[in-house]
Structures are given as C-alpha cells and as structure tokens.
Design a protein around this nucleic acid. Structure first.
Lengths: 149, 149
DNA sequence: GTGCCACGTCAAGTTGACTTGAGGTCAAGC
DNA sequence: GCTTGACCTCAAGTCAACTTGACGTGGCAC
C-alpha cells in the first residue's frame, strides 16, 4: 500500500483536507504518520472514505459510522442495524416516489392554481399525513443537492 | 373559515408554536390578527402548512418555499422548478435504491467481513462514484429519521 | 378587581458537519 | 542559508431550522 499525503487523499477522494482532518479528529480515519508536519495516509484510507460516504448517503451520522468501525480499524457493521436502515430507506424511497409523482403531476397540471387540482390536494393531504402526521417523527432533511452557493 | 389561535393550529398541524412564530417571521404564513396579544389564524393556514410540509419533504428549503407563494398569498409554483425537483428526486431515489440493496445484501452477506465481499465492494465503488464522485456535488443530507435524540 | 398563566418579544443557544482565520512550522528550491 | 508556500493547530464562524430562556403582558376564572 502506498503512502499518500493529505493533498493526494483529498484529490483522489474528493473530500476536502479540512474535512479529512475533521474525520481524523473524530476517529473516522487515521493517519499512518507524519512527514514533517504533514499527515501521511495509507492508501486504504480511500476505501475507508468510500465506506464513510456510503454510510452518509444511507443516512447515518458520522457518529453512527464511527461506531461501525471496531477498535482494530476493521469494519464491524451490525447486520441488524443494516437491515433496519434498509427498511427505513425503503420507507423513505416510497415517500419520495409519491412526492416525485406529485411534483411531476403538478408540473403539468392544467388547473390554473395547484390548489384547485384535486390530485394535488390529495398529494397535499398525503404529505400532511405522511411527512408530519407520523407523530414526532421528523421529515427527512431532504435531498438538497447544492443548487446555488 | 374559522379562526384558530396558535395553540389550536399547533395541535392540528403538528407544528410547534415556536415554529409557527418562526414561519410567520419568515413570511411563510400570516396571522389574520390578534386577540389581545395572541395570534389568530384563519383555518386555511392548515392547508398552507401542509403545502410547506410537502415542500420540505420534497427537499425544498424554507426560503425556496417562501418564493413559491405569490404576494397575494396564493401559491405561485413554478412548474419548471417542480419538474426539475422531480428529476432530482428521481436521481436521489435511484441512489437510495442502490444503497438499500447494498445494505440489504450486507445484512445477510456470509463474508466474515463486509470488505471481503465482492458485492459489497462493488456497491462501495458505486457509492464512491455516485455520492462523492460527482465533482463538488454534496451527498444528500440523508434520511435521518430521528432515531434517538 | 386581581392573580395566574399561556401567550408575547427578542436574543441567544443547539445540532451536525464542516470551513475559515490567525498565527506558527518545516521541507524544499534557489 | 533563507525565503516560500503548503501544511499545521486551535478557536471561532457558518448554515438551516428551530428551540430555549429571560422577561413582559393581558384575557379570563374566581
């Protein structure tokens, strides 16, 4: 395994150096040493970062992800937790699919105002019942994709 | 349309009073007046809150949602924006579906460690290419569902 | 008429995941 | 040998969407 400095890791992983330092501080990754001041990483860190990205994309927090790594550094992923998260993801996907259909309809709906469209109102009720009604359960943070910044 | 005070609106919508005040401050909802100090709302605010919830669930920020209401208070939803968001949602759904399959497989995978499973590694590469690789495009905030707070 | 309490305001705090800024250090090129 | 520039540390700032706290007020029950 080759050694990479933080800049190379950043370039190859797409993770900002500041984020890499942050991850190290949180124990999510570990540098293998220093060359002078500079952190050196084993190239396996790239795989680790991919795993972290996977976890984040699946909705785990960094803290939860940290718990998935055993002290020896190898992944120690709780299979039940994975199954639970898969189910949760499944529910989310269903909700988003409904949402997508709603948006798609609203985009082409001939009603002068969306509020006058029965289908839109139905979706609205579903959203009110689904996104909010689930009793103290927050709506997903959403799928913000860095539109403008 | 009946008048509701903030407590009733909170109860019926599931939105906390502090959040309702916050929404009013942001111009997302408007109170119809006061009874003494207390805000009174037209019952149509419930529909509005549902619309806000729908927008949030679809991934719009409060700011974006605010722009969807015309000054007269009626929804002024940009159909192109909806179509765009539907497409974005679609991409997100695809990504999450892949993720779900990955999790589901990992949960039952017989390999002693996930890193030794070719399928898991394939998913990992896909995640690295999808969630991170899209060049300066952030991974979705995720589908955190308030597990433990 | 008067006390209570749920409202009100406004500023500040919270959370997660980072980024930014100030000030310091060191490996390498000239 | 000295400058340079990319890295270092540590604290503080950012962003979104609210919540919390401190302190004030007025409608309603008694």
């Amino acid at each position: 395994m080759a050694e990479l400095d933080i800049t190379k890791v950043a370039r190859q992983s797409g993770v900002a150096p500041s984020a890499l330092r942050f991850y190290e501080e949180k124990g999510l990754i570990a540098s293998i040493g220093r060359r002078g001041l500079r952190r050196q990483f084993d190239s396996s860190v790239l795989e680790r970062l991919a795993l972290i990205a996977l976890g984040r994309a699946a909705g785990f927090s960094l803290e939860e992800i940290a718990l998935m790594f055993a002290p020896d550094g190898r992944p120690r992923i709780d299979r039940q937790m994975l199954a639970d998260r898969a189910d949760q993801l499944d529910r989310t996907i269903r909700k988003l699919s409904a949402m997508r259909e709603g948006l798609r309809h609203a985009a082409v709906c001939p009603a002068p105002s969306h509020m006058e469209c029965p289908k839109f109102r139905r979706i609205l009720r579903a959203a009110a019942g689904g996104a909010l009604g689930a009793r103290s359960r927050r709506a997903p943070d959403g799928m913000r994709m860095q539109t403008h910044r």
